[in-house]
Simulated scan of single mutants.
Amino acid sequence: MKFDLQRLKGERVARGITQAQMARKIGISTNAYWRKENGERDIGMEEFVKILSVLGFEKKQISLFFAKDVHNSEH
């Protein structure tokens, strides 16, 4: 399983939050946030919880942001 980064970006954009604003709210640089949102750097669970909080989600809703890894699923 991995984070659904397209959903993450979509939720951020839908709320009118820029990457710079998100970065500032979670305490990292805009460049670092861009790299994470675009899959160039991993997002840690603690950091992801901060992002969800900024977006207005609760910890229990974190599963909404996981993508099923179809390459590693057993049939």
Rank of each mutant, 00 (worst) to 15 (best):
R12H: 06
A14C: 01
R24T: 10
Q19A: 11
L8N: 02
K36A: 14
T18A: 09
L5E: 06
A23E: 00
W34L: 09
Q6F: 05
Q21W: 02
G39M: 04
W34K: 13
R15Q: 15
R35S: 05
I43L: 14
V13G: 05
D42L: 08
Q6I: 12
K25Q: 13
E11M: 09
R12C: 08
W34Q: 13
Q19L: 08
T30V: 02
K25P: 01
E40K: 14
N38H: 15
G27W: 01
L8I: 13
D42F: 06
V13D: 13
K2F: 11
G27D: 05
K25N: 08
I28P: 00
L5V: 00
K25R: 12
D4I: 04
R7Y: 07
I17H: 07
G10K: 11
K36M: 15
Q19D: 06
S29K: 05
A32N: 12
G10E: 13
K36E: 03
G16W: 02
R12D: 09
L8F: 03
A23F: 05
R15M: 11
G10D: 14
M1E: 10
R24S: 11
R24F: 00
N31G: 13
M1Y: 03
R41W: 02
S29V: 04
R15E: 09
I43D: 00
A32Q: 12
R7L: 15
F3V: 14
A14Q: 09
Q6R: 13
F3M: 08
D4C: 03
R41H: 13
R15K: 15
I28K: 06
I17W: 02
E11V: 10
A32E: 10
S29N: 03
D42K: 14
G16A: 05
R12L: 10
M22V: 07
E40Q: 15
G27R: 05
L8H: 07
M22K: 04
K25Y: 02
G44Y: 07
E40V: 09
T18I: 07
N31D: 12
G16V: 08
R12N: 06
F3E: 06
G39K: 06
E11H: 10
K2H: 12
G44S: 13
R7T: 04
W34C: 12
K25H: 00
K9S: 08
D4V: 01
W34M: 10
K36P: 02
A14M: 04
K36W: 00
G16I: 11
D42V: 11
Q6N: 15
R41D: 14
G44A: 09
A32G: 03
L5I: 09
N38D: 06
A32L: 11
E40R: 13
D42H: 08
A14K: 15
A32C: 08
I17A: 09
R7F: 10
Q21M: 06
W34T: 15
R15V: 07
L8T: 11
R12P: 09
Y33I: 03
K25G: 01
T18M: 12
G27Y: 06
K9P: 07
N31Y: 05
G16L: 11
K36V: 06
V13Y: 12
R41Y: 12
Y33D: 05
G16T: 07
I17D: 04
A23D: 01
K36Y: 02
D42T: 11
E40A: 10
Y33M: 15
M22C: 02
V13A: 13
G44V: 00
Q21R: 11
L8Y: 01
D4M: 04
E11T: 01
